[in-house]
Simulated scan of single mutants.
Amino acid sequence: MLTKQDIVAVVVLYNPNKKVYDNILKYKGLVNRLILVDNSLTNNKYLFKNIDFVDYIPLYNNYGIAYALNLGIKNSTEKYILTMDQDSAISANLINSYLKFLNVNDNNGIGALTCQYNTDRNPAVAKKGYVKVRQSMQSGTLFKRSTFDKIGYFDDKLFIDVVDLEFFLRMKRSELSLVRINAAVLNHHPAETKVKKILFLKLKYGQSSEVRNYYKARNLFWVAKRYNSLDMYKGLTISWLKIILLYDDKRKYLKAFNQGIKDAKHNRLGKYYSNYEGN
């Protein structure tokens, strides 16, 4: 029977603060071990030195989400890996729901389990059942170690954004299922929420930075071409429409978006944005 001792959590840090420290404390007793991989320029070990279940790995540079996740995974031995953002809130509900499912339904065709995401824009509550899905987010997803053994790790050329979506497309190609457990709910904090009034409607939407719009456009287009993925092309179109219809200072965001498309066409990946910013 699988237990919490079979699960390691990998959390990628970036300039962590006291709020992140408090969040990290919530992992105690819910997983066997917690590996923190820090993409900050400085060593923040002092924040976590008194937490006995934490392994801290400083990078002294920002190498991106994929590189950091891969390093954490490679420094673990547990059968299952839970990947998390530093501000996502773990809970007993999340872990227990995954274990309950796995102890009844685990098989070689499953590559990962994912959850419902409870946000201020899209509230979610626990429900019965489970369903196979094509896509999800890496934060809050429980991966089998055997999945990485079979299809490789996250693609660090993408640096940030769409890293999880590309991995799930690769899982599908290898006939590994992504299963959403409806009882598992993660409190998640995506991009800043804004509200736009259109006639009698109030639309809540997320607005990320100019840089993140660049990476999202670049990586969505590159992955869409590589996998001939209608889902990725739809995501790209929605991102463009959000800028056109909802964003202020559209010219700035469209410049980043268009540069992302251009770089994807020329296979300019990695941490590339700073090379042209302002040009």
Rank of each mutant, 00 (worst) to 15 (best):
77 T>F: 11
78 E>Y: 10
79 K>N: 13
79 K>T: 13
80 Y>F: 15
80 Y>W: 14
81 I>A: 00
81 I>W: 05
82 L>G: 03
82 L>A: 03
83 T>C: 06
83 T>A: 03
83 T>H: 00
84 M>I: 11
84 M>P: 00
84 M>S: 07
85 D>W: 04
85 D>P: 02
87 D>P: 05
87 D>R: 08
87 D>N: 14
88 S>K: 07
88 S>A: 15
89 A>Q: 14
90 I>S: 04
90 I>C: 06
91 S>D: 04
92 A>S: 15
92 A>F: 06
93 N>Y: 09
95 I>P: 01
96 N>G: 03
99 L>A: 05
100 K>L: 10
101 F>R: 05
102 L>G: 06
102 L>H: 09
102 L>F: 08
103 N>S: 13
103 N>M: 09
104 V>Y: 12
104 V>A: 13
105 N>I: 01
105 N>V: 00
106 D>W: 04
107 N>F: 03
107 N>M: 02
108 N>H: 12
108 N>G: 12
108 N>S: 15
109 G>H: 10
109 G>Q: 09
109 G>E: 14
110 I>R: 03
111 G>C: 08
112 A>P: 08
113 L>F: 06
113 L>P: 01
115 C>M: 07
115 C>T: 15
115 C>W: 00
116 Q>C: 11
116 Q>N: 14
117 Y>H: 06
119 T>W: 06
119 T>P: 09
120 D>P: 02
120 D>G: 01
121 R>Q: 11
121 R>I: 12
121 R>L: 10
122 N>V: 11
122 N>I: 11
122 N>P: 00
123 P>N: 10
123 P>T: 12
124 A>E: 14
124 A>P: 01
125 V>W: 06
125 V>N: 13
126 A>Q: 12
126 A>H: 11
126 A>G: 14
126 A>I: 05
127 K>R: 15
127 K>W: 02
127 K>M: 13
127 K>D: 10
129 G>Q: 11
130 Y>A: 11
130 Y>N: 12
130 Y>R: 08
132 K>V: 12
133 V>N: 07
134 R>K: 15
135 Q>L: 14
135 Q>C: 03
135 Q>F: 14
137 M>E: 09
137 M>K: 13
138 Q>D: 10
138 Q>S: 14
140 G>E: 01
140 G>P: 08
141 T>V: 05
141 T>A: 13
143 F>I: 10
